[in-house]
């Protein structure tokens, strides 16, 4: 368990908790990033946002936001 920002590229994780204001949560919900959803970490580097595969679509998440998403490895 840890935040999304600290995970490795290529890992498959399950979203456990979204820590942030309700505006932040709504934004993620709309793109299908919700508690219990399994995502693939497609791309992660030291500068760019994190690239996730969520139910077939590719979503970029800013690093600041990725630090507020709690995930569990599967």
């Amino acid at each position: 368990m840890g935040v999304l920002l600290n995970q490795k590229e290529g890992q498959k994780v399950e979203i456990v908790e979204l820590k942030g204001c309700s505006n932040f949560i709504s934004k993620l919900y709309k793109l299908g990033i919700k508690e219990g959803v399994k995502v693939n970490i497609k791309r992660k580097s030291n500068i760019c946002p994190i690239l996730l595969e969520v139910n077939g679509s590719i979503v970029a998440i800013g690093r600041g936001m990725a630090a507020k998403i709690l995930v569990r490895g599967i």
Partner: peptide, 12 residues
């Protein structure tokens, strides 16, 4: 004002 960061769909 705390601005939420980037959440953006990357289209095909």
């Amino acid at each position: 004002t705390l601005a939420p960061g980037l959440v953006l769909e990357i289209p095909e």
